[in-house]
Design a binder for these strands. Structure first.
Lengths: 115, 115
DNA sequence: TGAACATCTGAGGTGATGTTCATGTATATC
DNA sequence: GATATACATGAACATCACCTCAGATGTTCA
């Protein structure tokens, strides 16, 4: 017996999975955490609460320009917020979603629990 | 008054954030979900439990070759597992981590709760 | 055995991504 | 006002990621 290829089942399945727009949106969010530098930045911001660009750059070990570029991305995506004070700009994570997502990922991928 | 630039604070902070290796590993994981096509594939596999390549390709609306390439990526990363039966290969999600991560993301980014 | 099918794989093109470098702007200090 | 600092921005460049296409492998069936 061959496999099903049941058209009805497939049509019904399409109805239940993420539609293209939602998938695009989710992928955009995951993309922001799909870079080691940005993950460390978010980690640092979560730990410190708030950091200016040059301090953040030093903590993650990247140039200020590269850091600024990354922060711009995350700021435009609404992932971090900026507060200007004097000539410094302090960044913080904007919402708790990223915090939670990072926590879940760390918990499950780094701290054992292989299933 | 200028901002702190407190070296001790920064050194202490570096100790507490994700180290480069862990950040790399996490980023790799997030990268797998950072593509609309893969997100839909995972969504379909979670919903259906198991799907062969051609059905999966049809459900997500992608070519079989592209789908196979994506599956290979996810398979090598240990995200999905393959079961061969006849000339078909059935894929399923390998661990519950991705399932959880996807659920959390869907819950927080798609289903309201803007904070 | 031959033909159709399901899947995999490598090569190549193209667009996205991240970095550096140079420069621009705003603020603080002298 | 001149200079230094903190950050932002745009261009150039290298790299990576994803797709298509062509072809190879393994399987089923007549």
């Amino acid at each position: 017996m061959d496999h099903a290829h049941d058209p009805q089942r497939l049509v019904a399945l399409v109805e239940r999975i993420l539609d293209p727009d939602d998938a695009e949106l989710l992928a955009e969010r995951f993309k922001l955490l799909a870079d080691p530098g940005r993950v460390r930045m978010v980690s640092a911001l979560v730990e410190a609460g708030e950091l200016c660009v040059c301090d953040l750059a030093e903590v993650v070990g990247s140039s200020e320009s590269a850091t600024s570029h990354q922060l711009r991305q995350m700021r435009l995506a609404g992932l971090v917020r900026a507060r200007k004070q004097g000539r410094s700009v302090y960044y913080r994570v904007a919402d708790s979603h990223i915090r939670l997502l990072l926590d879940v990922a760390v918990e499950h991928y780094l701290h054992g629990d292989p299933r």
